[in-house]
Amino acid sequence: MTLTLAQANLAIASAIDKATELDIRISVSVCDAGGRLLAFGRMDGGHWGAGYGSQGKAVASAAFAKPSGLLTERASSPIMLGIAQAEGGHIFYAKGAVPIFIDGVLAGACGVGGGTGEQDEQCAAAGAAALLP
């Protein structure tokens, strides 16, 4: 199962809607199950650096098929550091991304940067939820 560009853009729009409710400015990245970027959006006024965070968190979530925040405890372990190095250093083990499952199969992840970790995860979850039937 792969995500379409239309699905990725719907997830981005839904994450941005949630950010608007929370009165924060975010960047949103949606990647496929292999961690490759499908679509990206940054709200007007969003910090440029949040784009890197949103993508790195999405990569982590897709790589492990779980919310990126669940990986923070192990982030400094040799295995996790080795995975990040082998991946090219783009993976971020921080709260703010959730995997996207379609029909029980990992299809990708939605990652957000720009708010607190909790706010980012709320926005990412709203993006992923937009793709549920």
Score class of each variant (00 low, 15 high):
K95L: 13
A19I: 04
A125N: 14
D103M: 02
A124G: 04
W48D: 06
A126Q: 10
H47M: 15
E118F: 03
G51I: 07
I83N: 03
E118A: 14
V98S: 09
F92W: 01
F40H: 12
I12Q: 03
G82A: 03
N9W: 01
R42M: 05
G35W: 11
R25Q: 14
P67T: 05
L38V: 12
H90G: 11
E73S: 07
D23H: 15
E73A: 09
E121G: 02
Y93W: 09
L131K: 13
I83K: 12
G56L: 03
Y93P: 00
Y52E: 15
S29C: 15
A128S: 06
T2L: 07
P133V: 04
A6H: 08
R42G: 02
I16F: 01
T116G: 11
A60S: 15
A128T: 07
G53A: 15
L70G: 11
T116F: 04
A65S: 14
F64G: 05
A39H: 05
E73Q: 08
E121W: 01
T20H: 08
A97Y: 02
G114K: 11
I12K: 01
M43H: 00
F64P: 06
G111N: 14
L131D: 10
Q7C: 00
R36N: 15
S68V: 07
I100E: 01
L37Y: 07
G88N: 08
A8H: 05
D17K: 13
A58P: 09
C110T: 03
I16K: 04
S27Q: 08
A86R: 07
A6V: 09
V30L: 11
I12N: 07
A39M: 08
F92A: 13
G108N: 04
